[in-house]
Design a protein around this nucleic acid. Sequence first.
DNA 1: CTTGTCACTATGATTATCATAGTTACTATC
DNA 2: GATAGTAACTATGATAATCATAGTGACAAG
Lengths: 163, 163
Amino acid sequence: MPRRTDLSDTFCPVGRSAELLGDRAVLLILRDLFFGRRRFEAIATNTGLGPQLVSARLKLMEEQGVVERHAYQERPPRHEYRLTAKGKDLFDVLYAMRNWAERWAYEEGEIVGPAVRYTHRACGADVGTSTVCPGCGEPLRYGDLKGEPSAALKAEQAARAGA
Amino acid sequence: MPRRTDLSDTFCPVGRSAELLGDRAVLLILRDLFFGRRRFEAIATNTGLGPQLVSARLKLMEEQGVVERHAYQERPPRHEYRLTAKGKDLFDVLYAMRNWAERWAYEEGEIVGPAVRYTHRACGADVGTSTVCPGCGEPLRYGDLKGEPSAALKAEQAARAGA
DNA sequence: CTTGTCACTATGATTATCATAGTTACTATC
DNA sequence: GATAGTAACTATGATAATCATAGTGACAAG
């Protein structure tokens, strides 16, 4: 492609977000980071993206300040990637995407129950696909939720990690 | 590129959403639709995307059931694009993107106040960047909010429409 | 009968992405 | 101490998506 138009100087907030988030690879990497995958290989394997793409996107995300590289051992040098505060604040976006997909992206009877079941740590309620806890009424934030992948999703991830 | 991996059959809900939303053009078109731009030319002009891309993405979005084509006149045939219920339900995603950008994507002093100010129709409160109205405590949904673009954003859009 | 508008489609240059293979720097095993 | 393994990448070449620009068809207005 020719260089795509840069949106980082628009005054529109959705445009500015789209510059980073309007990219499949970035979204998938963010998902994995939110699920606790911090290492390059784990992310590359689980997302199914090539190492080159993962490398490029992690660099971009580091530049944008949403992830940080940490060395977790010296010899040989090994790093992991962690969400910064700016990155963790993207939780609402990913959670909204998840909610939308749970409501619209599965065929009738394709899976039993939600693809990932979330419960509110504070009160234990199943939050369904709402942004406010149906049990206690609190707005849901990053860290408040415990996600439990369905059997189908677990199997799929295991298959990618195994093969 | 080689054909990119299809994510529409993953069991991960974020993956399924990313198939549609992990695309700058789709996000920009959705933004314009949410802001009431329904016509092809208006969308192409305001987004800055080429007509070919707009055409391709609107087709995709129609296939996915997030927009519908309506004829608003017979001779000559003219259409407009409207969000379906499935499309309107993406509001939370776009709103979360907006909130994140308002918090993180502007330099100190780059603009005065928010890029787009939202007020809750029901109670008149400025909602800031929250998902629950700070005035009355109600969760914010599509249609509940009135957006007022900043002067800078208005000027930018006028420039694109004029040139 | 020329100009204008709307909603597109066509063309060619450029570049991002994918699959595959290779690299570096170690550790662990035989 | 030679081979295999692991983690985090980089290099290469084929393919396809995107952009800029121009063009089309159907009609309305002047």
